[in-house]
């Protein structure tokens, strides 16, 4: 599901502050297809990478409204139209007693839906990722890995490598999985 790119440049930083400073420079240099792979989220990284705020809250809003509509629809359909019953002469459309289930349904739809959409969004709304086997270990332990994909419009291998080196990244290397396999 996630797009991957076999070509690109990798480098890593040892501290979140360094990664944050580097991210702003990569953004300002005009790179688009770059990413930071980190063991934990870094505060301020969105801005440093030039990303907009996540659109997940809108999904939550829509799903919450769906949950409210579903619960209200079900309860009113059952209690008013399908089989109205007389409980102590109270009105059929007893809206105050529909509120608890409406609230629960809202939370149910909004929470589960947002979680699911966020997981999928992390896979789809992204840039071509590095080949998994190359970065897995460091990026979930203690390295803050910078990846610039060769799919970037301004890609130039030599320039990209020199640029990442100039940021002070460690272990800078050009990645070309296909060529390595051929060699």
């Amino acid at each position: 599901m996630t797009p991957t790119s076999n070509k690109g440049v990798l480098g890593h930083f040892c501290e979140p502050a360094d990664a944050l400073a580097a991210a702003a420079k990569v953004r300002d240099a005009g790179w688009k297809h770059f990413d930071f792979l980190t063991p934990f989220p870094i505060h301020g990284m969105e801005e440093a990478m030039g990303q907009k705020r996540s659109w997940i809250p809108w999904v939550t809003l829509v799903l919450a409204l769906c949950g409210i509509l579903f619960a209200q629809g079900l309860q009113n359909y059952v209690m008013v139209f399908d089989w109205p019953m007389n409980f102590g002469g109270k009105p059929h459309a007893a809206w105050p007693s529909y509120i608890p289930i409406t609230f629960e349904a809202m939370v149910f739809w909004a929470a589960l839906g947002s979680a699911l959409v966020a997981i999928v969004a992390g896979k789809i709304d992204t840039i071509p990722q590095p080949p998994p086997m190359l970065v897995k270990t460091g990026a979930t332990v203690d390295r803050f890995v910078l990846w610039i994909s060769a799919t970037d419009p301004k890609w130039n291998a030599a320039e990209a490598e020199a640029f990442v080196k100039s940021l002070g990244a460690h272990g800078v290397r050009l990645v070309d999985v296909k060529e390595e396999a051929d060699a």
């Binding site: 930071f36 792979l37 980190t38 989220p41 990303q51 705020r53 996540s54 992390g122 990722q129 990026a139």
Partner: peptide
């Protein structure tokens, strides 16, 4: 789900976690 620590995924992840 093949998590690799990408900050483009963390962005949505953090938003969803807050929600």
């Amino acid at each position: 789900f093949g998590w690799n620590g990408s900050h483009r995924a963390w962005r949505h992840y953090e938003s969803a976690y807050m929600i």
